[in-house]
Amino acid sequence: MQLTGSHTLAAPIEKVWQMLMDTDILAKIVPGVSRLEKTGENQFEAISEIKLGPVSGKFSGGLTLSDIIEPSTFTLNVSQNSKIGNADASIKINLVSVDAQQTEISFDGDAKLSGLLARTGQRVLSGVANTLTKQFFSNFEEEIVS
């Protein structure tokens, strides 16, 4: 499943970068995440609960960051397991400064799904992903303001 999107946030690039690297903030703004812990340099453990159409599940697994070039790009590698199937994704995230107060964030990646997750509701999944993305950006905006 392809994951792509972009959004312009009302914050300078350095601030956006700093927030993305802060696990406490990320845990708040990423939809569904109930726990995010740093386990090593650029390595995290995450637990999340996600409802995808009729399918809901509790996911756990690792997140790693790689190819980091501050403050413009990094790759997020996700490996999440659940009883309804596993999700493995690699997502490249890019930040571009629009002006001193605005930053465009874009991402492009591919997710491999398996199990029940793969065979149920694939057609609604991209819609779900869009919803989650919108939620993420709106949470992000709220966090910038607060």
């Binding site: 159409g53 009729p54 491999k112 799904l113 398996s114 199990g115 029940l116 793969a118 065979r119 149920t120 509701g121 694939q122 057609r123 609604v124």
Partner: peptide
């Protein structure tokens, strides 16, 4: 089936 061998329409929604 997708190229990974996952049945991607394995429910009555799909």
């Amino acid at each position: 089936f997708d190229e990974n061998g996952q049945l991607i329409n394995g429910s009555y929604m799909d």
